[in-house]
């Protein structure tokens, strides 16, 4: 396969122009970035931003982790149960659970992420209303649950019932979209480490989410970040929780699977 990328001209209006010959997107069975070169978004932040993430007191993402911890043990719904009614440290522990997501829900056969699992639990076991995507409470609970896997590598299942979702996610990753006609890999595989205006392009891993972004001045979900990417290439962003994004999450988890979860991470 011929791959030739002639890259990254920053022209006046701030448009990153790629001139590309050759075609990509054969089914990669190997990760496009060598394990030795795999870098978390953390590695693309300034020293001060990294220091803030490393500070378990001052990292503002912990405001949501703390809130999520409180919500986790708070009773909700008609069944008058808390998450801790079912999940303790020893029984159905959530330690390490986020590293296995997205995951196929056995009852529906759907691939779901942490946010959707939390809402399924609310519906099935608590008889509580689902929390809306990007609400403070869902962000807090997701941050808390993901934080329980901090330091663990992604280990999501990509075969069996997950395989079609994995392939759909990979296809989304390599599909050109938007007015700029760019796919994810144009920035995050071919040009990571290059400058895009004042930014250094990362490898586009989702291992820090939900993440506290200075730009947002709050914590946000991976889907919020994916919507930003779509908007960045002038594509119509998909709704929060869209199946395409959940499938993409699985592909992202696989391509990042030598990295460990960092939630709550801090990004610029």
């Amino acid at each position: 396969m011929t791959l030739r990328a002639v890259i990254a001209s920053l022209i006046g209006a701030g448009v990153l122009v790629f001139t590309i010959t050759g075609v990509v997107a054969q089914s990669p069975t190997e990760r496009a970035i060598d394990d030795a070169d795999l870098k978390s978004g953390y590695d693309f932040q300034s020293e001060d931003t990294r220091a803030l993430q490393d500070d378990d007191f001052a990292n503002p993402g912990f405001l949501w982790v703390d809130k999520g911890a409180a919500l986790f043990s708070e009773k909700a719904g008609k069944n008058d149960r808390a998450c801790t009614t079912c999940h303790t440290d020893t029984v159905r522990s959530i330690k390490g659970a986020a590293a296995r997501y997205p995951s196929v829900d056995e009852k529906t056969g759907q691939l779901i992420n942490i946010e959707q699992r939390i809402n399924l639990c609310r519906e099935r076991h608590q008889q509580a209303e689902p929390l809306s995507y990007e609400s403070e409470d869902l962000l807090a609970m997701t941050a808390y649950v993901a934080h329980q896997s901090r330091g663990q590598p992604f280990n999501a299942k990509t075969d069996g019932t997950a395989q079609s979702h994995f392939e759909a996610g990979r296809d989304y990753y390599y599909a050109r979209k938007g007015q700029m006609n760019l796919a994810c890999h144009h920035c995050h595989e071919w040009n990571w480490g290059q400058m895009l205006r004042g930014d250094r392009l990362s490898q586009g891993h989702g291992n820090g989410y939900p993440a506290y972004r200075f730009e947002w001045q709050t914590i946000g979900s991976l889907h919020r970040r994916l919507r930003n990417c779509d908007k960045g290439v002038r594509a119509e962003p998909l709704p929060f929780g869209a199946q395409e994004y959940v499938d993409l999450e699985l592909y992202l988890a696989w391509r990042a699977s030598r990295l460990t979860l960092e939630t709550p991470s801090v990004r610029r």
Partner: peptide
């Protein structure tokens, strides 16, 4: 003493 509070400011 360090303090942190959630507020959008």
């Amino acid at each position: 003493i360090k303090t942190l509070i959630s507020h959008q400011m």
